[in-house]
Amino acid sequence: MAQDNKRRDILTVEGLKAYYQMSYFGVDREVRAVDDITMTVRRNEIYGIAGESSSGKTSFIKVLAAALRPPFRVVAGSVKYDFSSGPVDVADATDAQIEAIRWRHLSYIMQGSMSVLNPVRRIGRTFEDFAARPLGLRGKAFEERVVSHLEKLKLPADVLRAYPHELSGGMRQRVTIGLATVCRPEFIIADEPTTALDVVVQKEVLSLIRDVQQEMGSSVVFVTHDMSVHANMADRVGIIYAGRLVEEGPTRQMFFAPKHPYTAHLVASLPRIGDTTQRPALEGRPPSLAAPPSGCRFHPRCPLAIDKCKTDVPPLQTVAPDHRTACWRWQDVQPLVSPHAAHGVMA
């Protein structure tokens, strides 16, 4: 069984802590953006990560993608991948090791596609920069490979000769997805891949990512704060609050039987067409990661908080198959939406 689990999981994160450690003129500042996260990602699965802004989603994913640079450092824990080329722990791998897996086995779609695409380089040149070496192809063979890949993404071959600013937002995002998938990696990491796209294009891009994932049998970890995207994309969803994983479970259960008050709130805060009841925004403001609250980090904003929450950190415990939550009062969490309540409205 243990052996089975090993083959099933492509990524195992254990006790991961990663901090921004800065010093300004002798004053030290530490932002604990990732604070003790343990989780696994399976082969051929889409794992969604949600959380409010500045909760540390991007930071966490940067560690997974081995794309962190000072002052951001891994302080403790491990991030082990089990690739076909052999296991790697990116939390303390050498640059050469990371270079060897980047794009071929592990690829990363960064937040804000414009920052990846060099504004003064044609798209084709960017493809060469990123993918020619990992693929080991050159000239004509390389171009054919890229063009056939772009075709799958419904992009014309012309885009290779375009500059980034000549493309629309949706096309740019498809180009970055193309970059990330052209080497057929086993593991794809995407940070807010569809934020700032219109709903029509968003749906297109999402189904594209899923088609590519299913065709290649890769695993995808993707971050977005948009719960409705998770609802339609993810096999499993993990919720990050103030640098920690507070709940994780199969998508359906997360939406209709959440076991953490914060998840319940996230799901309920989604506005719907046809419904103008005042949606409560969460009281208080996101905690500072430089000085996070004691005990359960959600306690200052939690409607269910009890005294114990202020002092004791709730452990992430399994409450149902595949479903873990970090809350002392998980039995008392009521789902704020039911699968049917929404139906009538959208008809």
Binding site: Q202, L206, D226, M227, S228, H230, N232
Partner: peptide, 25 residues
């Protein structure tokens, strides 16, 4: 109408419905 149909809904969370009627598009 296409815009409205493309809005991702959460009521069938976990079913992975992402297809839009191609005629509408």
């Amino acid at each position: 109408r296409l815009l409205k149909a493309s809005v991702l809904s959460t009521e069938d969370a976990g079913d992975g419905k992402l297809a839009t009627n191609p005629d509408m598009v």
